[in-house]
């Protein structure tokens, strides 16, 4: 569904990632690790075409990125749920409307009961009417996860989704992602939380990728 072949990217200067390849298949579960600044966020942005690879090929759902129009990209993004590291909310709209935003922009009707259930799932039922700036870091990430999955996307890309939440909530978010994975969705989580990876490995067969020396490597079984 998301296909990267020999992809390179650099912000102006030298390459941050070089000759990176990955194929995300339906039902797959990946972790992406690497030290801070190694390019995890950059890699994810390449996957949802927020950045365009400077070399190599990127394909989304069988379509080469270079041939996609702006509307094609918009439609592809509706099939990819992203938990952004910095969350990216509309600060003037309440949490509930932010979570429902992908439905709104796609012109799909939202079911209030579903929305309520989803908010309850991420523990934000009480905060539905709060504005994003009023949320704690953990609440923001839970809202971001809710927004990422509301369209029932084929792929979920999560950038440090548990960075600011306590362990109990981390496990809850993880189990939501695992549940989505069992429904056949592809999951890719960027994190440096090794405990999270270990917890996940007890529930699903997850592959662990590591960015090292500008390359993407399959991490050993040492985790």
């Amino acid at each position: 569904m998301i296909e990267l072949k020999d992809v390179s990217y650099g912000y102006g200067g030298s390459d941050l990632l070089s000759g990176v390849s990955l194929s995300l298949q339906p039902g797959s579960f990946h972790f992406l690790t690497g030290p801070s600044g190694s390019g995890k966020t950059t890699f994810l942005r390449l996957c949802y075409l927020d950045l365009m690879a400077t070399a190599g090929r990127v394909e989304l759902f069988g379509q080469p990125a270079r041939k996609m129009t702006r509307d094609d990209i918009a439609h592809a993004r509706r099939r990819i749920g992203v938990v952004h590291q910095d969350c990216q909310f509309l600060d003037h709209l309440p949490v509930s409307q932010n979570v429902a935003l992908p439905l709104e922009v796609a012109g799909r009707p939202e079911n209030p009961a579903d929305l309520e259930e989803l908010l309850a799932w991420v523990g934000l039922a009480e905060r539905a009417d709060a504005l994003p700036p009023e949320l704690s870091g953990g609440e923001r990430q839970r809202a971001a996860l809710a927004r990422a999955v509301i369209m029932s996307p084929d792929v979920v890309l999560a950038d440090e989704p548990t960075g600011n939440v306590d362990w109990e909530m981390s496990l809850r978010l993880l189990s939501l992602l695992v549940e989505l994975n069992r429904m056949g969705k592809a999951i890719l989580i960027a994190t440096h939380d090794l405990n999270l990876i270990r917890a996940a490995k007890k529930q699903v067969s997850a592959r662990v990728l590591r960015i090292r020396d500008r390359q993407l490597q399959l991490a050993g079984a040492d985790l």
Binding site: A74, R78, Q88, F89, L90, L101, P102, V105, A106, M151
Partner: peptide, 15 residues
């Protein structure tokens, strides 16, 4: 920033 968020969640330019 609003435009960026809308693009990220799949809004088309026309929207």
């Amino acid at each position: 920033q609003v435009i960026r968020v809308l693009r990220l969640v799949g809004a088309r330019d026309s929207y």
